[in-house]
Amino acid sequence: MTILLFGVTKDIIGSPSLSIPSTHINGRKLPKNVGELRQFLGKAYPELNKLSSLAIAVNNSYADDKTEVNSYDEIALIPPVSGG
């Protein structure tokens, strides 16, 4: 699963994208939907939990927490940005 990072999420995670291997590591359960993905990423990068609004897109469409995610999906983390 490829996760593209935008705005401040790129700074928090420290790279423009993230890859979650399809086989589980450390016995950790892999996220099946967007809600689980939020928790999964929040554990690895606690700074993400502080964001009041963080849109997640699955294959370029805005997704709610119930949207299923699969290993071949392209995910994007999109926080609001403010500069002008």
Binding site: V8, K10, V81, G83, G84
Partner: peptide, 8 residues
Amino acid sequence: ALHDFEGQ
């Protein structure tokens, strides 16, 4: 809106 080299 902007953030670094990125815009929305």
